[in-house]
Amino acid sequence: MLRKWFVSIVVFLVMTMLGLALVGFDGKQLEAAPSKVRVGAIYSIANPERAGGWDRAQFAGLQILTKEYGWEVSIAESVPFPKLAEIASGYADKGFEIVVFTSSGHYDGLAEAAPKYPKTNFLMMSVASKLPEVPNVAAFSPDMYIYGALVGITAAKASKSGVIGVVGGVPIPALKLMFSGIIEGARSVRPKVDVIVSWVGDWVDLAKHREVTLLQARKGADVFFTVTGPGTMGVYEAVESAKGLVIGYAADWHSDAPKAVLTSVLVDVRKMYKEMADAFLAKTLHRKITKIDASYFKLADFRGKVSAGVEKDIQDTINKIQRGEITIPVKMHPDIVGK
Protein backbone atom coordinates (compact mmCIF):
# COMPACT_ATOMS: atom_id res chain seq x y z
CA MET A 1 0.00 0.00 0.00
CA LEU A 2 2.80 2.36 1.10
CA ARG A 3 4.80 1.46 -1.98
CA LYS A 4 1.80 2.19 -4.26
CA TRP A 5 1.43 5.63 -2.73
CA PHE A 6 5.14 6.24 -3.10
CA VAL A 7 5.16 5.19 -6.76
CA SER A 8 2.12 7.43 -7.43
CA ILE A 9 3.82 10.43 -5.79
CA VAL A 10 7.06 9.80 -7.72
CA VAL A 11 5.17 9.53 -11.02
CA PHE A 12 3.27 12.73 -10.23
CA LEU A 13 6.49 14.60 -9.36
CA VAL A 14 8.29 13.39 -12.47
CA MET A 15 5.37 14.37 -14.71
CA THR A 16 5.15 17.80 -13.04
CA MET A 17 8.86 18.40 -13.50
CA LEU A 18 8.75 17.29 -17.11
CA GLY A 19 5.75 19.57 -17.68
CA LEU A 20 7.59 22.51 -16.12
CA ALA A 21 10.65 21.77 -18.21
CA LEU A 22 8.56 21.74 -21.37
CA VAL A 23 6.80 24.99 -20.44
CA GLY A 24 10.16 26.56 -19.70
CA PHE A 25 11.52 25.36 -23.01
CA ASP A 26 11.04 28.38 -25.24
CA GLY A 27 10.56 26.99 -28.72
CA LYS A 28 10.96 30.48 -30.18
CA GLN A 29 14.60 30.46 -29.21
CA LEU A 30 15.27 27.69 -31.65
CA GLU A 31 13.27 29.12 -34.51
CA ALA A 32 15.19 31.09 -37.08
CA ALA A 33 15.11 34.76 -36.13
CA PRO A 34 16.59 36.54 -39.12
CA SER A 35 17.00 39.91 -37.41
CA LYS A 36 18.85 38.49 -34.43
CA VAL A 37 22.36 37.15 -34.40
CA ARG A 38 22.55 34.07 -32.24
CA VAL A 39 25.58 33.26 -30.15
CA GLY A 40 26.28 30.02 -28.31
CA ALA A 41 28.85 30.25 -25.53
CA ILE A 42 30.48 27.21 -23.98
CA TYR A 43 31.84 26.98 -20.45
CA SER A 44 33.35 23.98 -18.75
CA ILE A 45 32.53 25.31 -15.30
CA ALA A 46 29.19 25.80 -13.58
CA ASN A 47 27.64 29.17 -12.80
CA PRO A 48 30.00 31.35 -14.89
CA GLU A 49 28.28 34.54 -13.78
CA ARG A 50 29.71 34.05 -10.29
CA ALA A 51 32.64 31.69 -10.92
CA GLY A 52 36.32 32.48 -11.51
CA GLY A 53 37.43 35.87 -12.81
CA TRP A 54 37.89 35.06 -16.48
CA ASP A 55 34.53 33.25 -16.67
CA ARG A 56 32.84 36.13 -14.90
CA ALA A 57 34.40 38.68 -17.24
CA GLN A 58 33.36 36.63 -20.27
CA PHE A 59 29.82 36.46 -18.92
CA ALA A 60 29.77 40.24 -18.68
CA GLY A 61 31.03 40.42 -22.28
CA LEU A 62 28.25 38.14 -23.47
CA GLN A 63 25.71 40.38 -21.71
CA ILE A 64 26.97 43.27 -23.84
CA LEU A 65 26.01 41.33 -26.95
CA THR A 66 22.49 40.96 -25.58
CA LYS A 67 22.01 44.44 -24.18
CA GLU A 68 23.80 46.59 -26.72
CA TYR A 69 23.43 44.57 -29.91
CA GLY A 70 20.14 42.82 -29.16
CA TRP A 71 21.71 39.47 -30.01
CA GLU A 72 20.47 36.23 -28.56
CA VAL A 73 22.98 34.45 -26.35
CA SER A 74 22.68 30.87 -25.21
CA ILE A 75 25.09 29.55 -22.59
CA ALA A 76 26.12 25.93 -22.09
CA GLU A 77 27.67 25.34 -18.66
CA SER A 78 29.63 22.48 -17.15
CA VAL A 79 30.52 21.05 -20.56
CA PRO A 80 33.25 18.41 -20.13
CA PHE A 81 36.16 18.71 -22.54
CA PRO A 82 35.29 15.55 -24.55
CA LYS A 83 31.79 16.97 -25.21
CA LEU A 84 32.93 20.40 -26.42
CA ALA A 85 32.80 19.58 -30.15
CA GLU A 86 29.39 17.94 -29.74
CA ILE A 87 27.88 20.97 -28.00
CA ALA A 88 29.49 23.36 -30.49
CA SER A 89 28.15 21.26 -33.38
CA GLY A 90 24.72 21.35 -31.74
CA TYR A 91 24.76 25.15 -31.80
CA ALA A 92 25.91 25.18 -35.43
CA ASP A 93 23.23 22.66 -36.41
CA LYS A 94 20.57 24.92 -34.92
CA GLY A 95 21.79 27.83 -37.03
CA PHE A 96 23.75 29.82 -34.45
CA GLU A 97 26.02 32.24 -36.27
CA ILE A 98 28.73 32.38 -33.60
CA VAL A 99 30.04 29.80 -31.16
CA VAL A 100 32.25 31.15 -28.37
CA PHE A 101 34.77 28.99 -26.54
CA THR A 102 35.69 30.60 -23.22
CA SER A 103 38.79 28.68 -22.16
CA SER A 104 42.16 28.05 -23.77
CA GLY A 105 41.66 24.39 -22.91
CA HIS A 106 38.76 24.31 -25.40
CA TYR A 107 41.07 24.43 -28.43
CA ASP A 108 40.57 20.77 -29.42
CA GLY A 109 36.78 21.17 -29.38
CA LEU A 110 37.03 24.25 -31.59
CA ALA A 111 39.44 22.52 -33.98
CA GLU A 112 37.12 19.52 -34.31
CA ALA A 113 33.87 21.41 -34.85
CA ALA A 114 34.95 24.39 -36.97
CA PRO A 115 35.86 22.55 -40.23
CA LYS A 116 32.45 20.83 -40.29
CA TYR A 117 30.41 24.06 -40.21
CA PRO A 118 31.96 26.64 -42.56
CA LYS A 119 28.99 29.02 -42.21
CA THR A 120 29.40 29.32 -38.44
CA ASN A 121 32.05 31.47 -36.77
CA PHE A 122 33.99 29.67 -34.05
CA LEU A 123 35.74 32.01 -31.64
CA MET A 124 38.32 31.41 -28.96
CA MET A 125 37.88 34.16 -26.38
CA SER A 126 40.91 33.13 -24.36
CA VAL A 127 44.63 32.50 -24.73
CA ALA A 128 45.41 31.09 -28.17
CA SER A 129 48.74 30.60 -29.92
CA LYS A 130 47.36 28.89 -33.02
CA LEU A 131 44.15 28.40 -34.98
CA PRO A 132 42.90 25.58 -37.23
CA GLU A 133 43.51 26.06 -40.97
CA VAL A 134 39.92 27.10 -41.75
CA PRO A 135 38.58 30.59 -42.42
CA ASN A 136 35.69 30.57 -39.96
CA VAL A 137 37.80 30.78 -36.80
CA ALA A 138 39.22 33.68 -34.82
CA ALA A 139 40.67 34.32 -31.39
CA PHE A 140 40.83 37.23 -28.97
CA SER A 141 43.83 36.25 -26.93
CA PRO A 142 44.84 38.15 -23.80
CA ASP A 143 48.53 38.76 -23.18
CA MET A 144 48.72 36.88 -19.90
CA TYR A 145 52.33 37.82 -19.30
CA ILE A 146 51.72 41.56 -19.31
CA TYR A 147 48.51 41.06 -17.35
CA GLY A 148 50.55 39.22 -14.73
CA ALA A 149 53.15 41.99 -14.73
CA LEU A 150 50.46 44.56 -13.89
CA VAL A 151 49.28 42.36 -11.02
CA GLY A 152 52.88 41.97 -9.81
CA ILE A 153 53.49 45.71 -9.89
CA THR A 154 50.28 46.42 -7.98
CA ALA A 155 50.99 43.74 -5.38
CA ALA A 156 54.63 44.70 -4.86
CA LYS A 157 53.81 48.36 -4.36
CA ALA A 158 50.88 47.62 -2.02
CA SER A 159 52.67 44.99 0.09
CA LYS A 160 54.07 46.01 3.44
CA SER A 161 55.91 42.74 4.13
CA GLY A 162 57.41 42.42 0.65
CA VAL A 163 55.94 38.92 0.32
CA ILE A 164 53.25 38.20 -2.27
CA GLY A 165 51.14 35.05 -2.31
CA VAL A 166 49.99 33.66 -5.66
CA VAL A 167 47.59 30.71 -5.78
CA GLY A 168 46.86 28.78 -8.95
CA GLY A 169 44.33 26.06 -9.60
CA VAL A 170 46.23 23.79 -11.97
CA PRO A 171 49.55 24.71 -13.65
CA ILE A 172 48.24 25.16 -17.22
CA PRO A 173 50.47 27.03 -19.71
CA ALA A 174 48.45 30.28 -19.52
CA LEU A 175 48.94 30.42 -15.75
CA LYS A 176 52.64 29.62 -15.92
CA LEU A 177 52.96 32.55 -18.30
CA MET A 178 50.90 34.86 -16.13
CA PHE A 179 52.64 33.93 -12.89
CA SER A 180 56.04 34.46 -14.52
CA GLY A 181 54.74 37.91 -15.46
CA ILE A 182 53.73 38.52 -11.84
CA ILE A 183 57.23 37.68 -10.60
CA GLU A 184 58.94 39.90 -13.19
CA GLY A 185 56.44 42.74 -12.76
CA ALA A 186 56.87 42.68 -8.99
CA ARG A 187 60.68 42.57 -9.25
CA SER A 188 60.70 45.46 -11.72
CA VAL A 189 59.44 47.81 -9.02
CA ARG A 190 60.72 46.02 -5.89
CA PRO A 191 63.78 43.87 -6.65
CA LYS A 192 63.87 42.05 -3.31
CA VAL A 193 60.20 41.08 -3.31
CA ASP A 194 59.40 37.45 -2.51
CA VAL A 195 56.65 35.86 -4.64
CA ILE A 196 55.34 32.55 -3.27
CA VAL A 197 53.52 30.48 -5.90
CA SER A 198 51.37 27.53 -4.80
CA TRP A 199 49.12 25.17 -6.73
CA VAL A 200 45.97 23.69 -5.29
CA GLY A 201 45.65 20.88 -7.81
CA ASP A 202 42.05 21.63 -8.75
CA TRP A 203 39.82 24.58 -9.55
CA VAL A 204 36.94 24.00 -7.19
CA ASP A 205 37.80 22.79 -3.68
CA LEU A 206 37.15 25.79 -1.43
CA ALA A 207 38.78 24.19 1.61
CA LYS A 208 42.01 23.32 -0.18
CA HIS A 209 42.23 26.83 -1.63
CA ARG A 210 41.73 28.28 1.82
CA GLU A 211 44.43 26.16 3.45
CA VAL A 212 47.00 26.87 0.74
CA THR A 213 46.42 30.60 1.07
CA LEU A 214 46.57 30.48 4.85
CA LEU A 215 49.93 28.76 4.58
CA GLN A 216 51.23 31.57 2.39
CA ALA A 217 49.98 34.10 4.94
CA ARG A 218 51.90 32.24 7.66
CA LYS A 219 55.03 32.70 5.52
CA GLY A 220 54.50 36.45 5.60
CA ALA A 221 52.47 37.16 2.46
CA ASP A 222 50.15 40.12 2.90
CA VAL A 223 49.00 40.71 -0.68
CA PHE A 224 47.56 37.84 -2.68
CA PHE A 225 46.36 36.99 -6.15
CA THR A 226 44.60 33.91 -7.44
CA VAL A 227 43.50 32.46 -10.73
CA THR A 228 41.30 29.48 -10.28
CA GLY A 229 37.65 28.46 -10.63
CA PRO A 230 34.91 28.38 -8.02
CA GLY A 231 37.66 27.79 -5.42
CA THR A 232 38.39 31.53 -5.52
CA MET A 233 36.18 32.19 -2.51
CA GLY A 234 38.34 29.84 -0.44
CA VAL A 235 41.33 32.08 -1.17
CA TYR A 236 39.36 35.21 -0.33
CA GLU A 237 38.18 33.71 2.96
CA ALA A 238 41.75 32.94 4.00
CA VAL A 239 42.94 36.41 2.98
CA GLU A 240 40.18 38.03 5.02
CA SER A 241 40.93 35.76 8.01
CA ALA A 242 44.64 36.62 7.80
CA LYS A 243 43.78 40.32 7.42
CA GLY A 244 45.56 40.46 4.09
CA LEU A 245 44.55 41.96 0.78
CA VAL A 246 43.76 40.24 -2.49
CA ILE A 247 43.83 41.49 -6.07
CA GLY A 248 40.81 40.36 -8.07
CA TYR A 249 41.25 38.64 -11.42
CA ALA A 250 39.68 40.00 -14.62
CA ALA A 251 36.40 41.20 -13.04
CA ASP A 252 35.70 43.44 -10.04
CA TRP A 253 35.52 41.16 -7.00
CA HIS A 254 34.83 43.87 -4.41
CA SER A 255 31.26 42.80 -3.65
CA ASP A 256 32.35 39.23 -2.93
CA ALA A 257 34.76 40.13 -0.13
CA PRO A 258 34.68 43.88 0.51
CA LYS A 259 37.15 43.72 3.41
CA ALA A 260 39.76 41.68 1.54
CA VAL A 261 39.74 42.98 -2.02
CA LEU A 262 42.48 45.57 -2.59
CA THR A 263 41.53 46.20 -6.22
CA SER A 264 41.02 44.09 -9.32
CA VAL A 265 43.02 44.12 -12.53
CA LEU A 266 40.12 44.28 -14.97
CA VAL A 267 39.97 43.04 -18.52
CA ASP A 268 38.04 45.41 -20.75
CA VAL A 269 35.64 42.76 -22.04
CA ARG A 270 33.31 45.44 -23.29
CA LYS A 271 35.96 46.62 -25.74
CA MET A 272 36.88 43.03 -26.60
CA TYR A 273 33.34 41.88 -27.32
CA LYS A 274 32.39 45.07 -29.16
CA GLU A 275 35.36 44.58 -31.46
CA MET A 276 34.25 41.04 -32.12
CA ALA A 277 30.62 42.04 -32.70
CA ASP A 278 31.51 44.95 -34.97
CA ALA A 279 33.86 42.75 -36.98
CA PHE A 280 31.09 40.18 -37.38
CA LEU A 281 28.59 42.80 -38.54
CA ALA A 282 31.14 44.29 -40.97
CA LYS A 283 31.89 40.75 -42.22
CA THR A 284 35.55 41.20 -41.31
CA LEU A 285 35.70 38.50 -38.68
CA HIS A 286 38.38 36.42 -40.36
CA ARG A 287 40.94 33.88 -39.29
CA LYS A 288 43.09 35.96 -36.98
CA ILE A 289 44.41 36.06 -33.42
CA THR A 290 43.69 39.51 -31.97
CA LYS A 291 46.11 40.26 -29.15
CA ILE A 292 44.45 41.65 -26.03
CA ASP A 293 47.33 43.81 -24.83
CA ALA A 294 47.97 46.09 -21.84
CA SER A 295 45.57 48.72 -23.21
CA TYR A 296 42.68 46.36 -22.40
CA PHE A 297 43.68 46.07 -18.75
CA LYS A 298 42.85 48.58 -16.05
CA LEU A 299 42.62 48.79 -12.29
CA ALA A 300 39.33 48.81 -10.38
CA ASP A 301 38.78 51.33 -7.60
CA PHE A 302 41.03 50.75 -4.56
CA ARG A 303 38.27 52.03 -2.26
CA GLY A 304 40.78 53.40 0.21
CA LYS A 305 42.65 50.14 0.85
CA VAL A 306 46.02 51.84 0.30
CA SER A 307 47.09 55.44 0.79
CA ALA A 308 46.39 57.91 -1.99
CA GLY A 309 50.14 58.16 -2.61
CA VAL A 310 50.57 54.41 -3.14
CA GLU A 311 47.48 54.28 -5.33
CA LYS A 312 48.79 57.11 -7.50
CA ASP A 313 52.21 55.47 -7.71
CA ILE A 314 50.65 52.17 -8.88
CA GLN A 315 48.39 53.90 -11.38
CA ASP A 316 51.26 56.01 -12.78
CA THR A 317 53.45 52.93 -13.29
CA ILE A 318 50.68 51.07 -15.06
CA ASN A 319 49.95 54.08 -17.27
CA LYS A 320 53.63 54.15 -18.25
CA ILE A 321 53.51 50.47 -19.21
CA GLN A 322 50.39 51.06 -21.27
CA ARG A 323 52.09 53.97 -23.05
CA GLY A 324 55.16 51.80 -23.66
CA GLU A 325 57.44 53.98 -21.49
CA ILE A 326 58.28 51.00 -19.28
CA THR A 327 58.76 47.50 -20.62
CA ILE A 328 58.85 44.35 -18.53
CA PRO A 329 61.38 41.82 -19.85
CA VAL A 330 59.80 38.49 -20.75
CA LYS A 331 61.38 35.87 -18.55
CA MET A 332 59.73 32.54 -17.85
CA HIS A 333 59.99 30.87 -14.46
CA PRO A 334 59.60 27.16 -15.09
CA ASP A 335 60.59 26.51 -11.45
CA ILE A 336 57.15 27.65 -10.28
CA VAL A 337 55.76 24.25 -11.17
CA GLY A 338 58.70 22.17 -9.92
CA LYS A 339 60.28 19.18 -11.61
Binding site: S198, W199, V200, E211, L215, V337, G338, K339
Partner: peptide
Protein backbone atom coordinates in the same frame (compact mmCIF):
# COMPACT_ATOMS: atom_id res chain seq x y z
CA UNK B 1 47.45 13.93 4.75
CA UNK B 2 45.72 16.91 3.16
CA UNK B 3 47.53 19.38 5.40
CA UNK B 4 50.89 17.74 4.66
CA UNK B 5 50.31 17.87 0.91
CA UNK B 6 50.23 21.66 0.93
CA UNK B 7 53.08 22.02 3.37
CA UNK B 8 55.16 19.75 1.15
CA UNK B 9 54.99 22.34 -1.63
CA UNK B 10 56.69 24.83 0.63
CA UNK B 11 59.67 22.64 1.53
CA UNK B 12 61.74 23.99 -1.33
CA UNK B 13 62.42 20.50 -2.72
CA UNK B 14 61.28 21.77 -6.11
CA UNK B 15 59.17 18.73 -6.88
CA UNK B 16 56.08 18.95 -9.05
CA UNK B 17 53.11 20.10 -6.90
CA UNK B 18 51.06 17.14 -8.07
CA UNK B 19 53.57 14.87 -6.34
CA UNK B 20 52.53 16.33 -2.99
CA UNK B 21 48.87 16.55 -3.94
Amino acid sequence: GEALAFRGQGTGAGLNPHYYL
